[in-house]
Design a protein around this nucleic acid. Structure first.
Lengths: 158, 158
DNA sequence: CAGATATGCGTTATGTTATAACATGTCAAG
DNA sequence: CTTGACATGTTATAACATAACGCATATCTG
């Protein structure tokens, strides 16, 4: 498992890098990174946390961009399909992906205190889909793995 | 991992057994198994699949039991707290637990074709919470693990 | 047993998340 | 330069969930 869970980083750089990576991937894949889609991704990258669809909608509103629910849901569906954004099931929320290059099964660590969500990787999980298939014959297409608890920082504060 | 995924079983027996187990556990724990709570559990056991809160509500309605949303949500919250029912996050739905005796982290295999949900156990998962804690310092309180895909039976039909 | 306290229930109203359906616009390929 | 595919804009509504308040019932305690 990687260990960047609750560490700091250069945020501007991270946003711009992720945006241009997404642009490139769209070109490669022959799909369109439209202004609305890009703006939604940018919002998620800037916030760097899990946002509800209606939170995003509100930010679009201040941009004077179209502000009806289907607008944001369509953009989110696209971004999730392309792997640029993940949906956090436990929160009914969306979060920009750390590593949009590689298709992977994310693990989310959701802090109940500060509401931060950290994306983790684990080889253990990547091996699990085949294991389930081998054992029970169930053909896994998508894994959801989310842990709720208290992050290191909030444990200290307590 | 256990292997009863999509097998048959004696359903009446399974319902009655689960209900009386729940009754006993409530007595032991000094909490109340009220008629509404018991009826909701019974509905979930009988259906033996994941039901939305409003599906349950509808069944209560035909019983001439109170039929407002808070009634069913309160019952579900109780049943989930006691471990008699699990919430399936991916589906916003609820399903009766196979093994209400033992507190555990369930894995759900959700078939996209027939919509059956199968509860699995895995030692792998039980060991994961401590592993996450050891690795990243994140203190896990609840794990959500759900796999979407195609069950063996639906693979054959395809 | 009376009164106090805690727990659960019934109901109204509303909040939150998500999609169906259909009309309009845009762009690139033939 | 038009046709077809993809994307957007909008209305309306579906689906999921909870806040808040008053009443009922159970249990505890003196």
């Amino acid at each position: 498992m990687t260990n960047h869970a609750f560490a700091h980083h250069d945020h501007d750089k991270c946003v711009n890098h992720a945006l241009s990576t997404a642009d490139q991937l769209c070109e490669t894949r022959n799909v369109r990174m439209t202004p609305t889609r890009r703006r939604v991704l940018e919002i998620l990258l800037e916030e760097h946390k899990a946002l509800g669809a209606y939170d995003i909608l509100e930010r679009l509103r201040t941009d004077c961009v179209a502000d009806k629910p289907p607008v944001v849901y369509r953009a989110l569906n696209f971004l999730v399909e392309q792997g640029f954004v993940h949906r956090v099931e436990k929160l009914n929320a969306y979060i920009a992906c750390d590593q949009p290059n590689a298709r992977h099964n994310p693990i989310f660590l959701i802090c109940q205190t500060c509401h931060h969500v950290s994306e983790q990787k684990s080889d253990l999980i990547e091996g699990l889909a085949p294991a389930i298939d081998a054992d029970s014959g169930f053909q896994v297409q998508k894994l959801v793995f989310e842990a709720q608890g208290v992050c290191p920082s909030c444990q200290k504060d307590a």
